Simulated scan of single mutants.
Amino acid sequence: MGSRQLHFAVFGPCGFEADTLVEISGSGNSGKSLVLQQLVAHCLAPYKFGGRQWSVVLINLSHKISRESLAKSIKMELKAYSVGEEVAEKCPTEEQLAEIAAECVSRVRFLNCFSNDDVSTSLIDARYAIINDPAIQLVAMDTLSEFYWLDELKITKRMSMYRHYRLLQARLEKLCKDAIVCGIYTVESAFLENRFGDNLPEASIKYHVRMQKIQSQILLNGLPLSFSNGVHLDASTK
């Protein structure tokens, strides 16, 4: 399965709709970051390679997605599309593929975070980035719940994992609705459990992606997931 096929499987033939929210949840090492990276790769790929040719803001909390790993996903996506369209005789060379992938990655604004304060600042920075670049159509966050355990103030106040998740989710949702862009994020499944009955407004999540890892098999919404475009699960993209 390539990024284009994954995109179709998750979103259907019409793909992302404006100001919608996508949640990719699952336990640790279930492939959440990999799926996010693959979907971003498809959104960045040029139209002629079956992509959407968007610009993207990536709020990078887990640092599992790098420019290098994203470029690799895009390059393999371009190659897989060319072969799938049976235009092998017109396939770009490896050098050309690398150049196209590099151009795609240049349209990603990486906002690297190392604390919850960084996340808050990045959500503000993302808003200004969208104002300054109308080509940005997607804000991606990996992993939304990353710094819960590092925030001593919120732990002291006994903020639940669910409340921590929902407050950040609400901020991302508001950003996407105000800017009329799509949002996608990953979150550990433990944060979805409202154990203490927190009363918070429900977010409007249009697409739910549930990741599982059973033994060595990765499942997406209960169905086996594998990639045929040369991208594999490894320590840097799990």
Rank of each mutant, 00 (worst) to 15 (best):
M1P: 08
R4E: 08
Q5V: 07
V10G: 10
G12M: 10
C14A: 14
G15V: 04
F16M: 04
E17R: 13
E17F: 06
A18H: 10
G26C: 03
S27C: 08
N29I: 05
S30N: 11
L36N: 11
L44I: 02
F49V: 12
G51L: 04
Q53M: 08
W54I: 02
V57G: 07
L58P: 00
S66F: 07
R67P: 00
S69R: 09
S69Y: 05
A71M: 08
K72N: 04
K75C: 04
K75V: 04
L78S: 10
Y81R: 03
E85T: 13
P92H: 09
E94M: 04
E94W: 02
E95F: 05
Q96H: 06
L97Q: 09
L97S: 04
A101S: 12
A102M: 02
E103R: 15
V105E: 03
V105P: 00
R107P: 03
R109T: 12
R109P: 00
C113L: 13
C113E: 12
F114L: 10
S115Q: 08
S115A: 05
N116V: 13
N116I: 12
T121L: 08
S122W: 03
D125V: 05
A126F: 00
Y128E: 13
A129D: 06
I130W: 02
N132P: 00
A135M: 10
I136A: 08
M141P: 01
L144T: 07
Y148P: 15
W149C: 09
L153N: 11
T156R: 14
K157A: 15
Y162R: 01
H164N: 14
L167E: 15
A170Q: 10
L172D: 08
L172V: 13
L172H: 11
L175P: 12
C176S: 10
V181Y: 05
C182A: 11
T186V: 09
E188G: 12
L192N: 08
N194A: 01
F196T: 06
G197F: 05
I214C: 06
Q217L: 07
I218P: 02
L219E: 03
L220P: 03
L223C: 06
L225F: 10
S228R: 10
L233R: 10
L233Q: 07
T237I: 15
K238D: 06
